[in-house]
Amino acid sequence: MLKLFADLVLTYIGTVTFGILLNVPRRALNLGGWIGTLSFLAYRLCMMANMGIAVANLLGALIIGILSMQAARYKRMPVINFNIPALVPFVPGGQAYQMIKNFALGNVSEAISFLLQVAIIAGSIAFGFLLAEMINRMQAKLMVMFSSRWSHENRNNPRL
């Protein structure tokens, strides 16, 4: 429990500092950090429940996608300010490194098994984002239908 808490604090710091390296505007840093922490918490809970890396990464990416869009609408900023820093704790750094190391040392079969893990994680994250995009568009369509402010603001939006 304490370990999980420490991990979450470190994830927040890591997300915010990665945002600084990308020159994310100051007023977006804090929210991006919270989105990263929340999605990482969901990921860790999935891993604790033994749901496998694919589901855990998919759920994490889904939460990042949905929350980032809400944050972008709230702050009126491009969504990449929030989702790129938040994605950092999901990078399969460990597996990618083991793959490189095993290829370099000649253990090809082990390297390929790590390569497959990297591919699974990357694919889950991509599909998580795709699902989030779908949900965001559905939400936008519903809001335009039911809210006069939204339909007024989006009257020129070609995507809706």
């Binding site: 991990d7 470190l10 994830t11 710091i13 890591g14 600084i20 390296l21 990482f40 704790p89 460990g94």
Partner: peptide, 24 residues
């Protein structure tokens, strides 16, 4: 940009925190 020292410190913190998160 953010000041250079802040970028350096951030790079250090990204490395350290993610090392602990990934590898404990």
């Amino acid at each position: 940009y953010f000041p250079f020292w802040l970028q350096l410190v951030s790079a250090g913190l990204v490395s350290g925190t993610l090392e602990v998160v990934f590898r404990h």
